[in-house]
C-alpha cells in the first residue's frame, strides 16, 4: 500500500528536468527528497501534485491517480514563504479546504481552522495579516493550511527552511505523528541531511533529474552517493542512538 511513481518525466520545452523516475513511497512514512540545487526536487514535487505537466503514471493504493484525485488527495506546500498578502492567518488556513467553502462557512469550519492553528501554537495570530508576521511564522501557517486539507499525500518543499531549531524539531515530530496516525504519505524536500536522517523513514536522492538512489537511510546516505549527488566528500557515521550522521568535509 503506497504512493507509486512510474516512469515519471518532466520537461520544460526540450529540456528534460526529471527523467524516467520510478519509486514508491509507503503510507505512514516520511520520504525525504535530497539533492543539490537544481537536482529536480521541487519540480518532482510539483509534478506529483499535478501542478507541472508530466509524463508517466501515478498510483495510490494500487489504483491509478487521476488529475481530479491529485487535486483532492494530494496537498503541496511550495518552498517560497514570501507571500505579500493582507489575508489574515485564519483566512489562509480556511483556504486549505477551498472546495468546501461557500458564501457561508460550513458549520464548525472556523473552529476547526482555529484548532488547526493550535498545532503549531499560532492561535493568537489568527487575525494577523500574513504580511505582518515573520517568515518562519508564515511557513508554519502554510504548513497548517496544507495539513488542514487532510490530504492522503502531503508534499512539502523545504518545510523547515525558515524555522528556528525548536520549530524544526516540532514540525518534523508532528509530521511523523501525522504519518503514523493517519497513514499519510509524506514527501519532503530537505537540505539538512542530519535533520532528515533523524526523522525520515526513507530517502530518494536526485541528481540532474535522475534518481541516484532510494530506500532506507543507510542505503542512500553513503559517502559515494553524497559525492555523486552533491559533489562533496563527507564522512557518514552513526551516533549513540544509531542515527546516521553526515559530516561534510570538502567540495570535490
Amino acid at each position: 500500500m503506497s504512493f507509486q511513481i512510474q516512469d515519471l518525466s518532466v520537461s520544460y520545452g526540450k529540456t528534460a528536468i526529471i527523467r524516467a523516475l520510478d519509486d514508491h513511497w509507503p503510507k505512514g512514512q516520511l520520504t525525504a527528497l535530497i539533492g543539490c540545487n537544481g537536482a529536480g526536487k521541487s519540480t518532482l514535487l510539483r509534478a506529483l501534485a499535478g501542478l507541472s505537466p508530466m509524463q508517466g503514471r501515478l498510483f495510490f493504493s494500487g489504483r491509478p491517480l487521476s488529475p481530479e484525485d491529485q487535486r483532492r488527495q494530494v496537498a503541496y506546500m511550495p518552498q517560497d514563504t514570501s507571500a505579500q498578502s493582507s489575508l489574515t492567518v485564519l483566512e489562509v488556513v480556511l483556504l486549505g479546504r477551498l472546495g468546501n467553502l461557500g458564501l457561508r462557512l460550513p458549520s464548525g469550519m472556523a473552529d476547526a481552522a482555529m484548532t488547526a492553528l493550535d498545532t503549531f501554537g499560532l492561535t493568537q495570530l489568527h487575525d494577523r495579516q500574513l504580511d505582518e508576521i515573520s517568515g518562519g511564522q508564515r511557513q508554519l501557517v502554510f504548513l497548517t493550511q496544507a495539513l488542514f486539507r487532510r490530504p492522503k499525500v502531503l508534499l512539502l518543499d523545504e518545510p523547515t527552511a525558515a524555522l528556528d531549531l525548536r520549530h524544526q524539531l516540532l514540525v518534523l515530530e508532528r509530521l511523523r505523528q501525522i504519518a503514523s496516525q493517519n497513514g499519510t504519505v509524506i514527501g519532503l524536500a530537505m537540505h539538512d541531511l542530519n535533520m532528515a536522517a533523524q526523522y525520515a523513514d526513507r530517502f530518494i536522492g536526485l541528481s540532474g533529474g535522475e534518481k541516484i538512489a532510494s530506500g532506507a537511510t543507510t542505503d542512500v546516505l553513503t559517502s559515494d552517493n553524497l559525492r555523486r549527488m552533491y559533489g562533496i566528500e563527507a564522512r557518514v557515521t552513526r551516533d549513540t542512538a544509531d542515527n546516521v550522521q553526515v559530516l561534510p568535509l570538502r567540495a570535490v
Binding site: A112, T115, T119, R150, R174, I178, T217, A241, N243
Partner: peptide, 18 residues
C-alpha cells in the same frame, strides 16, 4: 530516525475536527 518516535502525543494536525 529513532529520536522522534518517542515524541509526546500532541493532537494530530490532520485530525482537527474537535
Amino acid at each position: 530516525m529513532t529520536a522522534s518516535r518517542e515524541a509526546g502525543s500532541p493532537q494530530s494536525p490532520g485530525a482537527v475536527q474537535t
